[in-house]
Write a protein that binds this DNA or RNA. Sequence first.
DNA 1: CCCTGATTCGC
DNA 2: GCGAATCAGG
Length: 240
Amino acid sequence: MAWTDERIEQLRKLWEQGMTASQIAEELGGVSRNAVIGKAHRLNLQSRPSPVKAAEQAAEAAAPAPEPTPAPPAPPPPVVAAPVERPAPVAPPVAAPIERPAPVERAAEPSSVPTGAPAPITPPTTTPQPMIRSIGPGGFQRQTPGEQQSPIPPAPPRRLVPAKPSADMADKTSLLELNDRICKWPLGHPGEADFHFCGNPVNPGFPYCLDHCSVAYQAQLPRRDRRPPPPLPFGGPRVR
DNA sequence: CCCTGATTCGC
DNA sequence: GCGAATCAGG
C-alpha cells in the first residue's frame, strides 16, 4: 500500500488529532503501526507522549540542569500546616482571617503582631497555583523552550482536613451520600474544603446527570465505527 | 502480558 | 522512502 497524498494527509490529521499509531494504522488500512510511526517521523510529525522519550527528557531536566532560569522553590522546609487556604464564603468559625499574603518581602518583616494574637503562621512559600497551560492533541502538556524546569509539578503542600460539617457544606453532596441515583460528578478537588459531588438526579443508566454525561462521554467511540464525527472537508475516504 | 512511540537498518 | 525488528517505558 503506497503513501498517496491522500493517505499522508489523513495520517497527518489523525496523528495530530492524538490517535495512536495503531489506531491510525487500522483506520488507514493496509499498513502496520510501525509503518505509520515510520512515516510520521519521516514527515517530521513529532512530539507525542512517548514513554521512552518522556523518561529521557525528565532525567535530562532533572540531573544537570544548567538552567539560567531561577528555580528557587526550595522544597518547602518544615511542613507548616497551613490553615485551609480557601477563603470560605462564610466567616470561619475561629481563627483570624488570613488573607493571601501580599507580595511583600517577608524577610524584612519584624513581625509586628498585634498583642494577643497567636504566633504568625507563615503561609507556605509555594502558593498552590494551578498553572494554566495548553494541552496538545496527544494529551501532552506543551511547554515553552525555556520552561523545561520542574517537569513534575510538585504537589503543593496541602493538609488534608477531615470534612467538617459547616454551614456552606450543608447542601453539598458528600462522598457518603452517593448512591446510584444521584450524579457522582466531582466538583472541586478531594481534600479541599468544599469538595463535593454534583448530586443531581442521574441520567438513567449512567453515573452522572445529563449535563455531566455530556461532559464525560464525549470521548472516542469503539474504534470500528468511528467514521462519521470528523467532518472531512475533502470528500472523505474512499468507500471500500 | 498488553500497550505506547522511537530507533535501527536492510531493502 | 519504506517498514519489520527491536528497544524501552507505562
